[in-house]
Simulated assay, not measured.
Amino acid sequence: MAEKKAGRGWGDLQADTVEGRALAIYLRQLLDRSGKQLRDLEPSVRYDRSTISEFFSGKKVPSQQFIGKAVDALTTPLEREIRCQEALALWHKAKNPAPPSAHLPAPRPAEEAAAAALASVAATAQDQAAHAQEQLTQAHERNDRLTQERNRAQQMVTALSMLTVDLQQRMSGLKNPQGQETQQELARLTYQLDTAQQDLGRARASRGEAEQGSPAACARAATNLRNSSPVSAPPHPPRAATATPPSCHPCPKTFKRPSSEPTSTRCSTPCTASSTKARPCGTKSATNGT
């Protein structure tokens, strides 16, 4: 029996000719596309199920009347005319088959199934290869972005670390902590140190997220780096005012600078010759050896 049962495929074709096989295959395709069963055709074609099964297996060639009724029952009005023409053309060939010598050997179902399976596997492999190539390209691009973000974060960490150390050294080098100016300078440096340490913490967190390689971490790292602006190094506090040396002074002794300057510094203006003991600055005295 060639009846198509629920959950099972068609049975083997039993036609003796190539034309009979072609007609049976065409009728099976119509039935498959319609979604019906062989038993659903009984009221339309007025044949019992056993005879219908023989027509669909190719064991017997149906009548022209059966072809017309079967096509009407299995097709929609829009395609009914063209399907009927195709079925009748196959029916005429099945009723008047060509001699066996005029046909090439019929393809074996096993070979057809193997070729179809191979083509399906090849198509699937091509799709998977294209998808893998796309993923590889995206991974390379993402890795480049993460490397850039990590380098930027490392530069930020280095700069902020140096700035933090500089601020701490300047705070520890302040003298006279009770003075008003020193207190103001200390408060300013403290504020800048706190800001630098906060930015340093964000920069380190951004570097860690970039090294983890998460896309979301990469976006957060970029946002943190844009929001973190390094604190500009504050200007050094002004030096204490020093006494300005006179343009000329009587020697033999060297003009003495304030204690903050080296004692060997001498003025660049030569002394006047108004005194017999006077001598140009920059020469050594015979009495004190300076």
Rank of each mutant, 00 (worst) to 15 (best):
V61D: 01
V61R: 00
S63E: 09
Q64Y: 08
Q65F: 08
Q65C: 06
F66L: 04
G68E: 02
G68N: 06
K69E: 11
A70M: 09
A70I: 00
D72S: 07
T75N: 04
P77H: 03
L78T: 13
L78M: 14
L78Q: 15
L78Y: 09
E79R: 05
R80F: 00
E81S: 06
Q85K: 12
Q85W: 07
E86S: 10
A87P: 00
L88I: 06
L88K: 05
A89C: 13
A89P: 02
H92V: 15
K95W: 03
N96L: 11
A98D: 15
P100G: 08
S101T: 06
S101N: 07
S101G: 06
S101V: 08
A102N: 09
A102I: 08
P105W: 02
A106I: 06
P107Y: 02
P109Q: 09
E111M: 13
E111W: 03
E112K: 05
E112L: 15
A113L: 12
A114R: 15
A117P: 02
A119D: 10
A119F: 03
V121F: 02
V121T: 11
A123F: 03
A123K: 14
T124G: 07
T124L: 04
A125H: 07
H131E: 15
H131G: 11
A132W: 04
Q133N: 11
E134I: 09
E134S: 15
Q135A: 14
L136D: 15
T137N: 10
Q138R: 15
Q138P: 08
Q138V: 14
A139G: 08
A139N: 10
H140R: 15
H140F: 09
E141G: 05
E141F: 05
N143M: 14
N143V: 07
N143L: 14
D144A: 15
D144N: 12
R145H: 08
L146Q: 05
T147K: 14
T147I: 12
R152F: 01
R152L: 06
A153I: 00
Q154F: 01
Q154Y: 02
Q155L: 07
T158L: 04
T158D: 15
T158R: 13
A159I: 07
S161W: 00
S161Y: 02
M162V: 06
M162E: 12
L163V: 07
T164P: 00
V165P: 01
D166R: 06
D166W: 03
D166L: 03
L167C: 04
Q168T: 09
Q169W: 03
R170D: 07
M171T: 07
M171S: 10
L174A: 04
N176E: 12
P177N: 05
P177Y: 10
Q180W: 08
T182E: 05
T182Q: 05
Q183I: 13
Q183E: 14
Q183Y: 05
Q184S: 10
Q184R: 14
Q184M: 13
E185D: 11
E185L: 11
L186R: 06
L186Q: 08
A187D: 14
R188D: 12
T190Q: 13
T190N: 12
Y191S: 08
Y191M: 07
Q192F: 02
D194A: 12
T195V: 09
T195F: 03
T195L: 13
T195P: 00
A196K: 00
Q197G: 03
Q197I: 05
Q197E: 14
Q198E: 11
Q198V: 11
R202E: 09
R202T: 08
R202N: 14
A203F: 06
A203N: 04
R204Y: 04
R204S: 11
A205S: 13
A205M: 10
